[in-house]
């Protein structure tokens, strides 16, 4: 570890590598706090409406596929594991394994997005996209059911956007690692991406039971 850190580039504003690394990690955590609050606003909205409309939300949620949701949760949890492995090998300076697990993580992230795409497509076919063409039976529940699906698309859509950003970042990192770029010599870029990725996973950990597993 010691020799490896000595190669790391020190920015002018920092005194030493330890200070620089810790600054990046604290900075990332501070950013994640803003992300927690960002999703928090959506979760608060959802909770208020769910408490008020438990019955209709239950009815509406039956149009979501629990098996697909379950599968996607497994995919994301696994991708978190592979991301953790990427960080592990990056810390040990093993470039090949690092690249391998990063690619696996990306593949899992894409799997998640594809499955999500199928789910969205299914909603489209069923006429469950909120807006002028929204159809729901029984008709007297249409307003609240539309509220449920608005929130469903807002929450999973924002989450999917975060997954896409994660994939883009990982792609850049993979290329940089492949060409042995000096900026990915140390583990900090991977560690920060890892923190972000686990956060995306945590959001889904809450989204899955809240949206897919509503009790009657």
């Amino acid at each position: 570890m010691v020799q490896e850190q000595a190669q790391q580039k020190l920015s002018i504003q920092f005194e030493d590598i330890a200070q620089q690394n810790e600054s990046y990690i604290v900075g990332m955590w501070t950013f994640l706090v803003t992300e927690i609050m960002f999703f928090g606003g959506l979760f608060a909205t959802y909770l208020v409406y769910r408490v008020a409309n438990q019955e209709v939300f239950w009815e509406a949620h039956r149009h979501l596929s629990i098996p697909l949701g379950f599968f996607n949760t497994c995919v994301l949890l696994t991708s978190s594991l592979t991301m953790a492995l990427t960080v592990h090998y990056s810390q040990r300076g093993l470039r090949k394994q690092q690249l391998l697990w990063l690619l696996v993580t990306m593949a899992l992230a894409c799997t998640f997005l594809v499955v999500k795409g199928f789910e969205y497509h299914h909603k489209f076919v069923e006429g469950l996209i909120p807006g002028a063409n929204f159809r729901f039976e029984p008709a007297e529940h249409m307003r609240v059911a539309q509220l449920f699906f608005s929130l469903y698309f807002a929450m999973t859509g924002l989450h999917a956007l975060h997954v896409i950003i994660g994939v883009l970042v990982m792609t850049i990192l993979a290329v940089l690692i492949a060409i042995k770029h000096p900026s990915v010599q140390d583990f900090i870029p991977i560690e920060l991406t890892g923190l972000y990725w686990h956060f995306v996973d945590i959001v889904w950990i809450f989204l899955f039971p809240l949206l897919y597993l509503i009790p009657r």
Partner: peptide, 29 residues
């Protein structure tokens, strides 16, 4: 996930502080 995958268990008090601050404020809201 936070403790192990995100290494908070092995991190400084500062990281603990920030990791919990977000959830604490969420609870306030």
């Amino acid at each position: 996930v936070i403790l192990y995958f995100m290494h908070v268990r092995y991190s400084t008090r500062l990281t603990w502080l920030w990791a919990s601050a977000g959830f604490f404020w969420l609870l306030i809201m």
